[in-house]
Design a protein around this nucleic acid. Structure first.
Lengths: 198, 198
DNA sequence: CTTTCTTGATTGGCCGACCAATTATCATCG
DNA sequence: CGATGATAATTGGTCGGCCAATCAAGAAAG
């Protein structure tokens, strides 16, 4: 029962964050949203920071899961797989807007909370490793040019994050599908064989 | 005197945001940091939100200014100019860490505040216009391939934001100079003539 | 009957906003 | 030049309200 209650509280927290924002999150609202009393929150969590850390873990895991699923569904061909991942990331930002928005909210808190930073670092390390593996595969198959997979992973991640940000704050500027094609084009040209050695 | 006092308060606010974070910003701290009484804050600003909006405006203008200066110092050659802008953006994220961190903090609040969204949209519109103009110039000179300048601008901005994020949360992962070279390589390959029509 | 779980009221403290009172600024005029 | 009075700027304290966290008491479960 403990894990169930914890999850219930964490999910309520995420909903509150999506609705009102980090700065206006209160234990009262979380308890109300979860349908429990205020006291119970401190039975399952030491304090507010604990709940927030758990919320970031959940959000991050959720994002990772969705992207992993999309990647698994893609073909074996490295280019197609990268495209599938890119598309999945951007779709999350648009369709699962709430989850993505909460994740962005945590960015602002990370400089002030070591624990949140650690969770985020783990998420990005995993993401870079997964992307790097796909790139590596493409290099071996001579589909991609010789690049350091870690560099390529960082670049792809940065592109996706940056474009997702723009889609989040100015959704009307560009449909998600077009953004995905744009990012794909950049990645394809970055990894395509030929051209300079840079 | 009014404008001086306002600026004084806004600068104090930005320092507080950099130090303690958005969620822990209080009028008391701002007043203390600015070296004025609490009451004065409500004399020059209607309420807390007003101060925060002014703070975002100042931060955004500051970022814009620094990048504009870097661009102006660059050569006339489009590729070099883009490189200068990229370098300037990444340098800001690393060297003017405080300003950049405060800007990120505002991202988390934007989904919940129309006014902050509007300010941000203006900033990005300006940035895209400036970048787009440089790209356009390169296209005319046949240095770059035919791309929609707006697309290229969005891509470069996304890359810079994404890489800046990673530099912010994991500063040891990569020195700023290497990040700049990496981004330059991606942009160069994206804009280089030849290759597919995408 | 003991352990686990849950409640809702309480606590001390800090929050943003407001306001009456005080002080500085400055144009005007004796 | 110096007094005067209106206006602008500034103070510090007060207000109701909400915050996170605690706790004693009771309900459920085994």
């Amino acid at each position: 029962m403990p894990p169930v209650r914890r999850a219930q509280i964490v999910r309520a927290t995420i909903r509150c964050l999506a609705q009102d924002g980090y700065a206006r999150l209160t234990m009262k609202k979380v308890a109300r949203e979860a349908g429990v009393s205020q006291g119970i929150l401190h039975y399952y969590f030491r304090d507010k920071r604990d709940i927030l850390a758990a919320a970031l873990e959940t959000v991050a895991a959720d994002l990772n899961r969705r992207v992993a699923v999309a990647q698994a569904r893609g073909s074996r061909e490295p280019r197609a797989r990268l495209a599938a991942v890119v598309r999945a990331c951007l779709d999350v930002a648009v369709q699962q807007r709430e989850v993505w928005v909460v994740f962005i909210e945590f960015w602002g808190e990370m400089p002030h909370d070591k624990r949140l930073r650690a969770i985020n670092a783990a998420v990005y390390a995993r993401a870079r490793a997964a992307l790097g593996a796909v790139v590596q595969e493409g290099i071996r198959a001579r589909i991609f040019r010789q690049v350091r997979p870690a560099d390529a992973a960082a670049v792809i991640l940065a592109l996706v994050d940056g474009v997702s940000l723009q889609l989040t704050f100015e959704p009307d500027a560009m449909p998600a599908a077009r953004a995905a094609r744009l990012v794909d084009a950049v990645v394809a040209r970055y990894l395509a064989p030929g051209g300079g050695s840079t």
